[in-house]
Design a binder for these strands. Sequence first.
DNA 1: GAGTGGTCTAGACCACAGT
DNA 2: CTGTGGTCTAGACCACTCG
Lengths: 266, 266
Amino acid sequence: MKLSQVSANKVDKDSVIPIYYQLAKVFEKMIYSGNLNPGEKLTPENDIADHFKISRMTVRKALSELIDDDLLYSEKGKGTFVAKPRLDNVEFELQNFREEIKKRGMEPNPKLLKVKIKRANNEMSKKLHIKKGTKCLDFSLVISADNEPLIYEDKYIVYSKHKPILETELKDPSLSNLAMLHGNHYPVMSKMVLNASKADKNVANKLNIKKDAPVFVIEQTLFDSDKKPVGWGRSICRGDKFKFTSFSGWSKNNDNSKDKRGFEYE
Amino acid sequence: MKLSQVSANKVDKDSVIPIYYQLAKVFEKMIYSGNLNPGEKLTPENDIADHFKISRMTVRKALSELIDDDLLYSEKGKGTFVAKPRLDNVEFELQNFREEIKKRGMEPNPKLLKVKIKRANNEMSKKLHIKKGTKCLDFSLVISADNEPLIYEDKYIVYSKHKPILETELKDPSLSNLAMLHGNHYPVMSKMVLNASKADKNVANKLNIKKDAPVFVIEQTLFDSDKKPVGWGRSICRGDKFKFTSFSGWSKNNDNSKDKRGFEYE
DNA sequence: GAGTGGTCTAGACCACAGT
DNA sequence: CTGTGGTCTAGACCACTCG
């Protein structure tokens, strides 16, 4: 990179907008516009600082923003370089379903099918690493929106408290909320596994779809700080209503890629 | 947080390990061990700096590491606080399939079924925003590992160069590589959509599974810097062989969560 | 040895919270 | 008002890379 390329851009030291932020935008723009190409070496930090008459630490703050965004990378002793867009490395985001549905302007309507205290059977004892017969809370529900069933959920919480189940707390029937309210230990870690599957007769009936229709199956296990499972749940989502979308690489406009990414339903 | 809690911990100024890193580990440990609880306010930066006899900027560097990791958050004028673990917000990662397969110690074996120049039909003109009849490159392949077919792929590249297709480049048959080698414009943005579906007769045959067996369908569109599509591909992955796994929240050991996360096959 | 990024310092001023 | 985090400076020394 030649400094003459950036000389058209300047930073306003008296602006309320931080200098490092302005500077980061200058470089970001140059990358997105093709003024700065993948692999190209940037002017050294010291020279940038001199050119803009700012401190090197401020330059570093600007560059580190872009390094965090994977637009740049630096190599000790060598320099800072423009990165290649990582087109094949994407992330699919998933919040809890109520939030995902709300984000799309619809009102999630969870309907509790059952809540009961159940003694662990084979599957539960395996999933929760507990002995068969241990008392668990068993929740089962369907989440709908616009009068259409979307998700069928089954959840188990290792249980010993004798706390009543309140109407209000069923407004957030996420596994983590249920575990925090009713479990013995506070969950601090979550494992999720996403599978493609097809609806069995029972699920098809609950979700108002045909048997063998494609579904996403998402299993979640919650662990306490000792890595012991405290809760397990399985959510079955209609394949015709849900999809994951993700963007990666560079986008010219200021990319709130977070907004365009995630678990969608249509 | 009381400073007496941290006084047992110290940082070694003469270590080769950066002070900010040592300090970050101190706080990280306190959070994971329950010594510091969600919502709790940290000692002010100035006090931490005084206590460890280091510069405030170094303290800030340490804290910003933990803020990046979502272990802390700060509020201007108020203080820095311990965050709650976000158990219901996960990310499923997906690299390109050859990397995913390699990462699991197996050798991906892509087999090209066809490569040809094709004039855009209805679907292609829709996906690539081009007129029907425009020349495209059409690739179709099956990726196997351990002599088992895993993924069936169909890809189209908007094409005008007359460049020969070399054996070597088929070693990386990812859409982005093909687009870079044969497309007219350099791709800088990628959109991926993940669906649950079932195998049709043709795919079932190619992947050696039953018709209607569950599959993941991943569509990828590549765009150039003008947001014009330059390539489109669809990968169909056997549902019995692939799953996504993701961890979130806190894990006591130094969490290389990246290693435990992503698109797995078993 | 010269160039580069990584770390660190000891100050400074600001905007914002809560009192 | 005081306390807090956010920004910024003008230096410094180091480890690394490369010719």
